[in-house]
Write a protein that binds this DNA or RNA. Structure first.
Length: 401
RNA sequence: GUAGGUGUAGCUCAGUUGGUUAGAGCAUCAGGUUGUGGUUCUGAGGGCCGUGGGUUCGAUUCCCAUCACUUACCCCA
């Protein structure tokens, strides 16, 4: 027997029902907010992710499905969605055209990691990206849209926000932080490594000892420039005016190199260790890094497998028809009626003749609302009965060839 | 890579202090005297007890290895 690869799952059964429901409704809400659908290739040049996500991140460093294709190109399967969308934005020359573009996307992403709860090697993200809006009002609007989505799906969350600063204030802060880190002893192994590769992430360490050592570390938020500060204050005041609760987490860091200014995470405490169900923020320099004309950007990505268990589906109502045959002669007649009704209804049927009782049981199983059964007497009288399985009402209908 | 947990029917799990024919619930299928359902009753099918080796007269059970799944660390959505 051939099994699926480690960390790969089939989308079937209850998961597929929920998946479709999620995608349809998240898409609908995104459209209400002015986003339009974009789909980019799963396979991209490896350089795209090295330059955008950043070589210091584990994603690029050791988790990419990377290989050389038959044309000798260094390619990899996308580990995240933003890089591809930004690449497409530039490829379409939207950066030259100017103006505002809003996109939403969804689909599989690939990271070669050890699978655990809420983490697969092939997983699915839903995300949005806005290009060409410098105002932090867009950041706020995107966060408000997420609130709409989570409310629609009845998902409980908490929101954390932070500002990562900009190219004017971040480098200075980073230097100060490294100086501070050099001055202390006893950091864990991971932090010593992070000090070199991506010092900001030391702040995020879960090791208790490191936590203590970092209590007197310089904080990002108290070192950002006046522009960043003003934007962050405006973001907070907008969220407040919409009654959206948030927590400022000065240690919140995005794992991807391209983020600046606004960073946020939606967190659930009901799903295990991988509690971040959505992460996002601003990336004003990314278009430029990827050789486009400088264009600000902001967006988020949600991990669908992480939040799908929290999605509450509406109760399924009885819908459509069940049509059964009670004699072999009636099967053909049933098939004709089934095909006719399927032009505008969900219709279930079976190709074998069964007792009326057996058919009714089958109709209940598929949750049909209307029930039709055709046997010898129906063929003889040229009429059949449509029974409503909710109201138990029956109406007689003429059987035509 | 590291650490813990789990592998028995399609699914969820019992069980065997080592012994002939391995159980339950759910699901599936067929019936409950000629054609009115959702709860019920009866019956049937379905298992290399994860794989390989060891101990033993005998292993699904004990020992070793291995693989798979799972949770957690790292990282991230």
């Amino acid at each position: 027997m051939i099994n699926p690869l480690r960390g790969m799952k089939d989308t079937v059964g209850e998961f597929s029902e929920k998946y479709i429901y999620f995608i349809e409704n998240a898409s609908r809400i995104a459209k209400n907010y002015g986003f339009s659908y974009i789909e980019t290739p799963i396979l991209e040049e490896t350089a795209l992710f090295k330059r955008s996500v950043g070589e210091s991140s584990d994603i690029v460093g050791k988790e990419m499905y990377q290989f050389t294709d038959k044309g000798n190109n260094d390619v990899c399967m996308r580990p995240e969605g933003t890089a591809g969308v930004v690449r497409a934005f530039i490829s379409q020359k939207y950066d030259r055209a100017g103006g505002v573009k809003r996109f939403f996307y969804h689909g599989p992403m690939f990271r070669y990691e050890r699978p655990q709860k809420g983490r697969l090697r092939q997983f699915h993200q839903f995300g949005v990206e806005t290009f060409g809006v410098q105002s932090v009002k867009e950041d706020a609007m995107i966060i408000l849209m997420l609130r709409d989505m989570f409310e629609f799906f009845s998902i409980k969350y908490s929101l954390q926000i932070n500002s990562l600063g900009c190219p004017d204030c971040m480098p200075t802060y980073r230097e100060n932080l490294v100086k501070f880190l050099d001055s202390i002893d006893g950091l864990c192994e991971d932090c010593l490594r992070r000090k070199i590769t991506n010092p900001i992430r030391v702040l995020d360490c879960k090791n208790e000892n490191c936590h203590k050592l970092l209590e007197s570390a310089p904080m990002l938020l108290s070192n950002i420039c006046s522009t960043c500060r003003a934007d962050f204050d405006e973001l907070k005041s907008i969220l407040k005016s919409f009654g959206l609760e948030y927590e400022v987490n000065t240690k919140l860091v995005r794992g991807l190199d391209y983020y600046n200014k606004t960073a946020f995470e939606f967190i659930s405490n009901e799903i295990g260790a991988q509690s971040a169900i959505t992460g996002g923020g601003r990336y004003d320099k990314l278009v430029e890094y990827l050789d486009g004309r400088s264009t600000p950007g902001v967006g988020f990505a949600m991990g669908i497998e992480r939040l799908i268990d929290l999605v509450k589906m509406p109760e399924n109502k009885k819908i459509g028809y069940y049509i059964g045959a009670m004699s072999d002669e009636a099967i053909k007649q049933v098939m004709h009626l089934v095909v006719k009704l399927r032009k505008s209804n969900v219709v279930h049927t079976q190709y074998s003749s069964k007792s009326l009782k057996a058919h009714m049981k089958a109709a209940d199983k598929v949750n049909a609302k209307k029930f039709i059964c055709i046997g010898d007497s129906e063929l003889e009288t040229k009429t059949y009965v449509v029974k409503d399985l909710d109201t138990k009402e029956e109406i007689s209908v003429e059987l035509r060839d």
